[in-house]
Amino acid sequence: LRLEVKLGQGCFGEVWMGTWNGTTRVAIKTLKPGTMSPEAFLQEAQVMKKLRHEKLVQLYAVVSEEPIYIVTEYMSKGSLLDFLKGETGKYLRLPQLVDMAAQIASGMAYVERMNYVHRDLRAANILVGENLVCKVADFGLARLIEDNEYTARQGAKFPIKWTAPEAALYGRFTIKSDVWSFGILLTELTTKGRVPYPGMVNREVLDQVERGYRMPCPPECPESLHDLMCQCWRKEPEERPTFEYLQAFL
């Protein structure tokens, strides 16, 4: 395994491009020591290896001592969030954005069929390849993070704006909380990567959403798509659509 080009840095580690087995181009995620327990990670990795779908980033291998390494397929255009905010983002029109959403829903419909939960679905965790191919990455890892700023769910590192209220408040993460996050991801797509709930801080978002506030229809977004977002944001988790439905609708 060779680490060649550093692609990015996040709160919990770095991402590199490299070569595996001398020939395969891969992405390598390294986790800061202390982010998660190697034992817990190894268990999760076994499950992650079983998830194989064309719209999920394929896991190739893991190094399960500290520092933990995760070796996955390489996606040339990086994260969907950076892609939307970058040069190419300007030229993306609604049909392409909807197609990308459908690809993500397709990957998540598979996660749904496998009775698995992602827990951290957002544009930053979707990767883009050639020809606007989108794949879901980092599934299941969020559960293992041991950082206090994260586990408190009120901490600075927790993605509260993407998280369903029952998950943020009571830790009830299910495929239905993933559906909520998918609704937020749809706003990221239609606004080219704007942060959700602009002008609001995490605490406010939690309070307002509890009181029934939902983001309005983004500019140039059809009402039918906003309606779909609002279905994803129904207060009762069981009233939210399935990913199978979302995939078919898109």
Rank of each mutant, 00 (worst) to 15 (best):
243 F>M: 15
44 E>D: 00
55 K>R: 12
27 A>D: 01
118 H>M: 02
25 R>W: 12
173 F>Y: 07
81 L>M: 12
31 L>A: 12
69 Y>P: 02
35 T>G: 11
61 A>V: 04
146 E>C: 09
240 R>K: 00
77 K>G: 08
46 Q>C: 09
160 I>N: 00
102 A>T: 13
48 M>L: 07
154 Q>E: 12
182 F>W: 08
171 G>R: 08
56 L>T: 15
85 K>G: 10
56 L>A: 14
144 L>K: 15
136 V>E: 00
54 E>Y: 12
81 L>P: 05
25 R>Y: 13
236 E>W: 15
223 E>N: 10
71 V>T: 12
139 F>Q: 03
166 E>G: 04
84 L>P: 00
82 D>Y: 04
153 R>P: 10
62 V>G: 04
60 Y>M: 12
110 Y>K: 09
218 P>S: 08
19 T>W: 12
80 L>V: 13
212 G>A: 06
162 W>F: 03
153 R>M: 06
1 L>E: 00
237 P>D: 11
27 A>S: 05
152 A>G: 04
242 T>V: 14
214 R>A: 05
158 F>D: 01
186 L>Q: 04
239 E>C: 14
192 K>H: 07
231 Q>A: 11
146 E>H: 08
218 P>D: 07
175 I>S: 15
144 L>T: 08
77 K>S: 11
30 T>D: 07
158 F>L: 05
116 Y>W: 07
187 T>E: 07
117 V>I: 15
16 W>R: 15
10 G>D: 02
32 K>S: 04
141 L>P: 00
196 P>I: 06
158 F>P: 02
191 T>E: 08
109 A>Y: 15
245 Y>L: 12
172 R>M: 05
150 Y>G: 01
218 P>K: 04
71 V>P: 01
6 K>S: 13
59 L>P: 04
92 L>I: 13
35 T>R: 15
145 I>R: 04
51 L>Y: 03
43 Q>T: 06
93 R>M: 09
188 E>M: 01
54 E>V: 11
64 S>I: 04
15 V>C: 05
60 Y>D: 06
49 K>V: 03
198 P>M: 08
98 V>E: 06
185 L>D: 03
172 R>S: 13
233 W>T: 08
120 D>P: 02
70 I>F: 03
93 R>K: 09
213 Y>L: 09
28 I>T: 13
60 Y>S: 09
141 L>M: 06
214 R>M: 09
241 P>I: 13
30 T>V: 04
103 Q>G: 10
84 L>H: 03
93 R>A: 06
127 L>P: 01
194 R>V: 13
165 P>E: 09
217 C>R: 13
217 C>Q: 13
142 A>R: 00
222 P>L: 06
52 R>K: 09
13 G>P: 02
203 R>L: 14
48 M>R: 02
43 Q>E: 09
213 Y>R: 06
236 E>F: 10
155 G>N: 07
250 L>F: 10
105 A>N: 06
246 L>E: 04
180 W>A: 01
165 P>F: 11
180 W>C: 03
235 K>L: 07
